[in-house]
Structures are given as C-alpha cells and as structure tokens.
Design a protein around this nucleic acid. Structure first.
Length: 331
DNA sequence: AAAGAAAGCAACCGCTCGCTG
DNA sequence: TCAGCGAGCGGTTGCTTTCTT
C-alpha cells in the first residue's frame, strides 16, 4: 500500500520549469529558507508538487552547485565510491559537495558506466551490472559481499553514515586541495565544454547566482517577472535555464562566479541548506591533513598519482573490488 | 541538407525513512 | 505502538540536443 501522491488533490504542473517559476521559488526560499516544502506551492502559488519544488531547488537553484564537466578527480572519486557504496548517489554526492546526486547519477549512467565497460572489455553478453561487479568478491570466495551488506544493512549503514559524517569535512579539504582550480571556477583555465548543454549548466548556476545576489542586496520584493515570459524559446532540458542575463541588472556584470556563490552561501538564508557547501576556509587548510576516509578512498596502488589517462579508470574499478573487501574490515 | 539514431539531461514516480502526535 | 505526514533517495522516463549517414 503505497502512499498517495503528495500533490494528489491539486492540479500540478509538470515538465520543465520556467524562469518565472524559478524566480518565484528562489524568492520564496530567500525569504523563508529551504524546508517545509509542503507549504511552498501553497504560499507561492506555484502549481508544482512540493517534491518538484524541493528537487528543483536541490538540484539546480541551490547556491554552490557546480555544473558542467566533471574533473578527473571527481570521476575517480565517483567510480571508487560507486564501487564501494553501490548506487547510493546521495552518499556519493556527500563527498562531492558541489555536485548533486542527480547529476552524479546521470554522469555515472551516461559516461562512467560506459567508460568502464569499454575499458574492461565488457561485451553485451557479460554486461553485468557494474554495481554488482564491483561489489562482489572476485576471489575464490564466491559469496557476494553485497549480500552480506544487505543482511547487515542496518548496522552497516549506520556505521557508514557515522564515518561519512566524521570524514566528510576532512575529505573536502583533501579533494579541494587536489583540485585547486577545478571545483569552483569551471570557467577559469578549464577546457571549453564540448557541448552547449554543459556550458548552459554553468551559466545557469551563474545566472541564478547573480539573480540571488541581486536580491540579497536589494529589497525582498519579488521582481516583476512579466518580462521573462518569452525568454525561453522552448522548454528545455537545459535545466530550466534562464536567460538570466536579461533578467539582471547591469550591475550584475561585476564579480566572478565564485564571489557570487560565496556571497550567497554567506547569506544567512542559505545556511540551513541541507547539502553542505564547501567551506572555503577549509580549503585553505594544511595540505597534510588527509583523513582516514581519503586513505580509504585512495588507498595505495597509485591512485593518487593517476593522471588523466583511461587506464586509471580500470585501476579504480579494480580497486573497487579490492577495496570492497577491505571495507568489510573497516566496518 | 535532411532524417534517423544516439547521447545527455531534467524531471517525475514510487518507495522508504524518520519524525510527530 | 501505530498511523499519518513530509522529506529524501534511487530508478526510470521522455524531451532536447548532437552526431552520423
């Protein structure tokens, strides 16, 4: 007996979000903070399910989200964590503070999975699920450790969660230090995105950032959105990408994306955001403070030294198997 | 240049979990 | 203890864009 849909009784709009809706939602959250999603459609007049509002905010409008190209380091982290945790995207996303679980999930399904399969020479016949593959013992013991996990899921997860929480902060430091230029400023020195969608993501975040900044620095009145209605030529999959440039005051030109994001994250209204935002203080910390969790993630076998060649991915995936065994000991 | 195929991504759906009364 | 509710998560879908022929 499943629960009824959360918005069963009201007419809800579906499909891509419009700029107007984005603005309404952002404006509301700016005033009331994220959370209490049930009340969002009621109070804003949005014809959207509360779930949809939460998703939109969490995945696209929330400040501090990094979109676009995944770095090699992020790829490796995802691959390794996926081998370790399975398709627990939220848990994986907690290690990549600027990425959303949805983003990681999509990236895994569209890029990494195929990449690993290609590199492992997996054919269609033996195209087994990568999660299964990576979580099973490949030694003489045929017992899949995943099964054990399932059996002990409750305890295992509690311990895992504890470890995650304890290690998260330290891991952020390590990851940030390893990627000094990539995590926040995708537009600086990084290769041009290979297709427009990627660029659009970046600009989406940027634009929304500007939008928010504009609001935080001005009165809390909701801007007139009437001029927005034609900004979106088609409903896009571009993330409800606003052509926010047209929405913004001319002053919005000033300041980098980073500055804008930082400004927003410092805005009190966003301090209750569920997902952690990279602590810029932490990133400037001591290089040597690698955590246990990082060692756990990047343990031996030269992973840390990996460059950007594809062999790394094979290594990582294989390590995933081994690490999975190690993981049993850890937990 | 056009059509079809493939890839990529945003959003939805259904389920589970945790909190509260 | 249990039921109701809201929030969160992972799988899936369907639309848009890009690539190939």
């Amino acid at each position: 007996m499943g629960r009824p849909p959360c918005c069963e009784k009201i007419v809800v709009k579906k499909g891509p979000w419009t700029p107007e809706e984005d603005i309404t939602l952002v404006s509301y959250i700016q005033q009331h903070g994220p959370g209490n999603w049930r009340s969002v459609p009621k109070n804003t007049g949005l014809l959207r399910c509360s779930k949809s509002c939460r998703l939109r905010w969490t995945n696209y409008l929330r400040p501090g989200i990094k979109r676009g190209n995944f770095t090699q380091h992020e790829e490796k982290t995802i691959i390794h964590l996926q081998a370790l945790l399975g398709n627990r995207w939220a848990a994986i996303a907690s290690y990549l503070s600027q990425r959303t679980d949805n983003d990681i999930k999509n990236y895994w399904n569209t890029h990494l999975k195929k990449k690993l399969q290609r590199q492992n020479g997996i054919t269609n016949e033996d195209n087994i699920d990568m999660t299964e593959m990576s979580s099973c013992n490949n030694n003489n013991n045929n017992i899949c450790t995943n099964s054990k996990r399932i059996a002990n899921k409750g305890q295992w997860e509690k311990k895992l969660q504890t470890d995650i929480n304890m290690a998260k902060q330290a891991l952020f430091q390590a990851l940030s230090l390893d990627q000094p230029t990539s995590s926040i400023s995708p537009d600086l020195g990084s290769p041009k995105p290979h297709h427009s969608a990627t660029a659009t993501y970046a600009s989406s975040t940027d634009n929304i950032s500007k939008l928010l900044q504009n609001w935080t620095s001005s009165s809390s009145s909701v801007p007139n959105t009437s001029s927005l209605s034609n900004n979106r030529s088609s409903s896009t999959g571009e993330g409800g990408v606003l052509d926010h440039q047209s929405l913004l005051s001319p002053n919005s030109e000033s300041g980098s994306v980073d500055e804008k994001l930082n400004l927003m994250t410092e805005t009190s209204i966003f301090k209750g955001v569920s997902k952690p935002i990279v602590d810029t203080e932490a990133t400037t910390d001591d290089h040597s403070s690698l955590s246990l969790i990082e060692k756990w993630l990047f343990d031996d076998q030269g992973m840390v030294q990996c460059d950007d060649d594809q062999e790394d991915l094979i290594d990582v995936s294989l390590q995933g198997k081994n690490t999975d065994n190690n993981c049993q000991d850890v937990f």
